[in-house]
Write a protein that binds this DNA or RNA. Structure first.
Lengths: 402, 402
DNA sequence: ACTAATTAATAAAATATATTATTAACTATA
DNA sequence: TATAGTTAATAATATATTTTATTAATTAGT
């Protein structure tokens, strides 16, 4: 009878579906009084009262006691029980992984950023990834069985529904999510990195009322995430947002996808890296010239560091890339008429060095009437964006809130 | 008590909201038995029975009697009453207007295609437009008060919520929808032409299960419409879909929007028209050379006619434009991972002449994994697309089904 | 400190909806 | 053409939900 709203099929079970709606409300809006929930959900106070009592007895919800008010009897406010369960997230990028855990309320309890890890398309690499995840989870003060699920971000084509990753860790028959599940012994959802970051920024961003936003993940590659009418957009197989492979340039640079002219070949961390080393080869000077001339590998992180130290070559290249990115963003504005565009990923660390040329290109290339609707911001979450998104998204998936 | 589900606010009125859901179901799926509706809506048979009886007494719904079955008692099937009301639609393009009327069931009763009309940004032009609409509506066999609303398609930036059109008929203080309403004495909704066409194709297309589709309106300009998760996408102010002004080319052609490099300058009817006349000026021959050399104006329609007659220059230019369009469509595929892309508008009449280069460019420029999800089709509705969309959309808006 | 006004929470009554049982209408098959 | 099996529609009953009334807790003003 008193089945958890998480379990079973609740098709046509109004009570369970209302409970889910309450959880959704608390996830998005924090704490609420019964009267507020009742108004928000167009459902009577006695019904909400009954459901809240049940949710408390199931320990998903806590009574946080009386709240201050502007006249009248003070209501009790209710919110999610932080300890009802935890959700872990892993963000895998080109050379690093980051991991974290959020509680039921969505607060991040643990975070490990940018641990070095080189991904290879082998079972061994997957084993090693999973043992890193396992040791992270075991070191937590949270009992292992309280971690309800794990979200894993990967770049490239990821079908989070089927659990298959096609660009990385495409290791044959079984879906990747199942392979990881077998190794970490906990439900696993995989997701495209840009989409997860988008969700993180959407849920944690200051503009929580925003219903139409585009997140730009400008890292080694370039991907975007799309929130439309308040929902994360996937597309037919979850491959939406591959803006990096938009045929944007008339150049002869071969993209890692095999095609040429991709936006990514001119607008991305890899593009900056290529341009920068090309210039060094041509004899341009930079504070990285020494390292380069000693035959050492220049990384994208080196370039971003140099930028912070006002390296002229880095500034110049970022400006150039920013201009093209602004042009590309103009296209998105004309296409989506979004309320908000958030720039995130590695390149977002360039802050105003990249935002300035972007803004000026938007003025140049987008329809003014359309672009004046659109706010452009830097990611609030920074390097935690990927993990936050992974955690938030896996919570929503687990609770069935999407 | 027995308030029509169309009127008043039905916030928190379950009965009215269920009625709307039934209407929505019948709009999308045609006729249903009570059992089917009950299953589809997760609501009990007695409840649905009660609501259907009410809807019949309100004359929105008709009992179409017994249906054949595969064993067991035959159910009565119910569907929309065609005569419950009518919806008119007007599609205004560069040089023509088309008008039509659908009944409550969505069947087109009347259609007048491509009546010549030159739109100007003046009150006089608007007066003349409205008198054309009025005489069309008055000539119908349908009593005027049975026409519940009128949908008007315009190209350019249209905010259908506020009723303002910013690109055409931007005539000052009052919203355009109100100006037309005053002249035709019937509720008016204005809409962007590409979006309306998209909705028409979405509702009438063969692939009715498709939840993610992109419609490409390739006419004098180039616009797209977006259906995501089964819903028509508007964006913040309803300006989404302005793909024609995506900064796509590195050319020096000034677009009608004032910017340069817009996709429209290379992929659109106007681009074909420009290229064609340029070639004629350069001395290239075509079956239109005679007309051109006599100093007569060559229209886009002339070129499309010549194409049908296998004019080599027309074929050549269409092929070239098709290739660029395919490149542009590849970008959309990578971005949206849609299930279906429909090509409509004037250029769709070029059929395989344009589809072939488009398909080949998609193979060249899109990610195979993504594009193999996507079917590409020509519009089923052809020249009726705009009016059909206007009618279907204004029905949905009036019935509150969006 | 008392009173009126305001809002919250609970209880009782009324209404709405769903479940189950029953009857009806039909198909397929012996 | 009878009969078992199947599905639909209706009736009766049970359950769920809302509405209204009542009580509780609080603030602001006198």
């Amino acid at each position: 009878m008193n089945t958890s709203f998480l379990q079973k099929s609740y098709e046509g079970n109004r009570s369970a579906s209302l409970k889910k709606d309450i959880i959704r409300l608390l996830v998005i809006g924090g704490n609420y009084s019964i009267t507020d929930i009742s108004k928000e959900m167009n459902t009577s106070v006695p019904t909400i009262t009954k459901l809240i009592v049940e949710l408390i007895s199931e320990s998903y919800v806590l009574d946080f006691g009386k709240q201050g008010t502007n006249g009248g009897r003070r209501p009790n406010v209710y919110g999610l029980n932080p300890d009802a369960g935890y959700f872990a997230g892993v963000d895998i990028s080109k050379d690093f992984i980051s991991m974290g855990v959020i509680n039921f309320k969505g607060e991040m309890n643990e975070f490990v950023g940018n641990r070095e890890f080189v991904m290879e398309n082998t079972i061994e690499s997957l084993d090693s990834l999973c043992s890193i995840i396992n040791s992270f989870l075991n070191k937590l003060s949270i009992p292992r069985d309280k971690i309800l699920s794990l979200g894993v971000n990967l770049s490239g084509r990821v079908n989070s529904e089927s659990g298959y990753s096609y660009s990385f860790y495409f290791l044959g028959e079984k879906p990747l999510s199942m392979l990881i599940e077998e190794r970490v012994d906990c439900p696993v959802y995989i997701e495209n990195d840009s989409r997860a970051m988008t969700y993180g920024e959407f849920m944690m961003g200051s503009d929580s009322h925003v219903k139409n936003m585009i997140f730009i993940n400008a890292s080694w590659g370039l991907g975007i995430g799309i929130i439309m009418d308040g929902r994360l957009y996937y597309g037919k197989s979850g491959f939406s947002g591959e803006y990096g492979h938009f045929p944007f340039f008339d150049n002869e640079i071969i993209c890692r996808c095999g095609k040429r002219g991709c936006l990514e070949t001119g607008v991305s961390g890899s593009a900056i890296h290529r341009m920068f080393t090309e210039r060094l080869k041509e004899g341009r000077v930079s504070m990285l010239s020494g390292k380069f001339n000693n035959g050492l590998e220049i990384t994208l992180e080196d370039i971003m560091d140099a930028l912070q130290k006002e390296d002229v070559l880095a500034i110049e290249i970022i400006e150039c890339v920013g201009n093209e990115m602004g042009k590309a963003i103009s296209g998105l504005i004309n296409l989506f008429n979004p309320e908000l565009i958030v720039l995130g990923g590695t390149l977002a660390a360039a802050k105003e060095y990249i935002m300035l040329p972007i803004r000026s290109a938007i003025n140049k290339y987008s329809l003014i009437l359309v672009s004046k609707d659109t706010k452009l911001k830097l990611s609030r979450l920074g390097e935690k964006c990927g993990v936050t998104g992974a955690c938030m998204l896996v919570r929503s998936k687990t609770l069935g809130l999407l």
